[in-house]
Design a protein around this nucleic acid. Structure first.
Length: 569
RNA sequence: CGGAGUGUAGCUCAGCUUGGUAGAGCACCACGUUCGGGACGUGGGGGCCGAAGGUUCAAAUCCUUUCACUCCGACCA
């Protein structure tokens, strides 16, 4: 294909609003353009990559026995009312009315539609298991779309759903999907981890996220150096410290801490480490406020907090008025000493002695505070509340945890009978009895994958595509193509030869200076580059260069096709 | 949703404080020189200064409203 005939609007300068590498490079390399917040047009080169990613996903899924379908992007309200999610989805779901004032939504997900199909068309256990998927657009009206295609409102997703009569059958398909996702990401040459994940409000114990490792990722994942344990930080359990709590050695002392509120301020004011302090968080609860106590330098894990009894969903912090009414002081001076509301204490916080905490009076803290002696500690309310941190022991007892960032590109989980019950999806079993179907759900972000690939595969000059998803295999640069007959003839011939050999070739035949072509080639990141110029043609040679390792060598013109065949891998 | 910020040429931005005929670089078009790592010269095209109101003799600039977009946060306890 000729570059002069393709719309590849590369940018010399970086657009002002792109923060992360993949977003910048997708704009600069002319892969996408923004239409509105979180909505992108895919230009020719970007679409070629997207199609390749799709093709790999499709190929592996088909091999796994899943069947492709295509469901409507606009969905009627009736199904959502039936499942109870018309209300539950909230503002993430974009709603609209047709000319008859009937309610519709842009599909944020397709559990309802797929379940509707299956309940109508699958009547017998003999038709199970049934594993259906589609690759289709989703629309979720995110609070804050960002990072280009990473968190877009409209995005392409592969979503699959499987239906089963029993748990064993479901488990087999789940394992197969887990393996299939691994094969898909391996084919894209991504460094990823399958991690245990929060199952959210769907329930069930089985859920894995597929995280592509990248510093720009929005998720944090913890993995062990002593086992294959890996989990989303949201999900990773923080074990209780092994050492018993030290015996109190300091006296409880109330100290004035004027205008000292945050843990950092308190620690600095008293000249101690934040890990010597406790922080007390107060949540709004169903029957009044609930206090949570953590070590000062630890973070509350909201997923864990959500599971406590009597806590409002979603987790909501008490406001100033509630604090004053229940505790008698504002945030910044809270502590467990003498607190008369339910108190849950994190395992690590419960093992501390001689700690610093708020005195429940504005402008005062305690030092030398101790559990039991000064603050009541109910053993049944010592729970895991915090996020794990680097160096924590692995929950499986083997090794210690490291934390790294990841981009969630896939998530598989069990839906149980949530939708099949709500929508009455049943089959007759061997005995002629009605059975409600068990469902599994398997998502993969196709557009996000393109971003994730670039996050892992780029350098200072541009993208470095892994061959399986590259928009072209070979980039032939004709230097002075429009001026030199020799260059034009040789470049045309090489491009034609390579295309005849079945390779995808981009021929830079533009009337541009060499420097522009080199810079654009680096930016576009096509794996193999053949530079055709007068200088080397004098000796019948062209330059071959790999985008990934910058290896460069001269090759005879009539040997270049052979060379490409040898190095393409 | 809370906070901060930005809307001026296709892109990156200046001009706004202190109102007085709309600018630069890149990109684009023409011509010439140049031609293996983002060339140079000359000439040229392109803007309802996000939108609407207001103040003023006069508004990109001041005021009000509104829309769009971006970033940060949503853990001061």
């Amino acid at each position: 294909m000729r570059a002069s005939a393709l719309l590849i609007p590369t940018l010399k300068e970086t657009p002002a609003d792109a923060e992360i590498a993949s977003h910048r490079l997708m704009l600069r390399a002319g892969l996408i353009r923004r239409l509105a917040a979180g909505m992108y047009t895919w230009l020719p080169l970007g679409l070629r990559v997207l199609r390749k990613v799709e093709a790999i996903i499709r190929d592996e899924l088909n091999r796994s026995g899943a069947q492709e379908v295509l469901m409507p992007f606009v969905q009627p309200a009736e199904l959502w009312l039936e499942s109870g999610r018309w209300e539950a989805m909230g503002p993430d779901m974009l709603r609209l009315k047709d000319r008859h004032e009937r309610d519709f939504c842009l599909g944020p997900t397709h559990e309802e539609v797929i379940t509707d199909i299956v309940r109508k068309e699958v009547r017998s256990y003999k038709q199970l298991p049934c594993n259906l998927y589609q690759i289709n657009f989703k629309f979720r009206d995110e609070i804050r779309p960002r990072f280009g295609v990473m968190r877009a409102r409209e995005f392409l997703m592969k979503d699959g759903y499987s239906f089963h009569l029993d748990e064993e059958c479901f488990a087999a398909t789940y394992r197969e999907m887990h393996a299939c996702y691994g094969r898909i990401l391996n084919r894209m040459q991504l460094d990823f981890r399958a991690v245990l994940a929060d199952t959210g409000n769907i329930g069930g114990s089985t859920s894995h996220e597929f995280q592509v490792l990248a510093n720009s990722g929005e998720d944090r994942i913890a993995f062990s150096n002593g086992s294959d344990y890996a989990a989303n930080v949201e999900e990773a359990e923080a074990l209780a410290p092994k050492e018993p709590r030290a015996t109190p050695s300091a006296a409880l002392t109330k100290v004035a801490t004027p205008n000292v509120h945050s843990i950092g301020d308190v620690a600095a004011f008293l000249g101690i480490e934040p890990s010597r302090t406790l922080k007390t968080l107060v949540l709004a609860g169903i029957e009044g406020p609930v206090a949570l106590v953590l070590r000062g330098d630890h973070e509350l894990n909201e997923v864990k907090a959500r599971k406590l009894p009597g806590v409002l969903q979603p987790v909501t912090f008490a406001n100033e008025t509630m604090l004053r009414a229940s505790v008698g002081c504002g945030a910044g001076s809270l502590g467990p000493v003498g607190l008369e509301i339910p108190v849950y204490v994190d395992r690590t916080a419960a093992a501390m002695a001689d700690f610093v905490c708020g005195a429940n009076a504005d402008g005062y803290h305690y030092t030398g505070a101790n559990w039991g002696r000064d603050a009541a500690l109910d053993a049944t309310r010592i729970v895991d509340l915090r996020n794990v941190v680097d160096g924590d022991p692995s929950p499986d007892g083997r090794g210690t945890l490291s934390i790294t960032r990841g981009i969630e590109v896939g998530h598989i989980f069990q839906l149980g009978r949530k939708y099949s019950e709500a929508l009455n999806a049943t089959v007759l079993d061997r005995d002629g009895a009605t059975q409600t179907l068990i469902m599994g759900c398997y998502g993969m972000g196709v557009t996000r994958l393109v971003g994730a690939i670039i996050e892992q595969c780029h350098d200072d000059d541009g993208i470095v595509w892994p061959t399986p998803v590259a928009p072209f295999l070979v980039h032939v640069l004709g230097l002075n193509y429009t001026k030199s007959d020799e260059v034009r003839r040789a470049a045309d011939r090489i491009a034609a030869e390579l295309e005849a050999a079945g390779h995808e070739v981009l021929l830079d035949d533009r009337d541009e200076r060499p420097g522009v072509k080199f810079a654009d080639a680096d930016l576009l990141g096509i794996p193999h580059r053949v530079v055709v110029g007068d200088r080397n043609l004098k000796t019948g040679q062209v330059e071959y260069r790999s985008r990934a390792d910058a290896a460069s060598l001269l090759v005879q013109v009539d040997r270049i096709a052979e060379h490409i065949a040898a190095v393409k891998g």
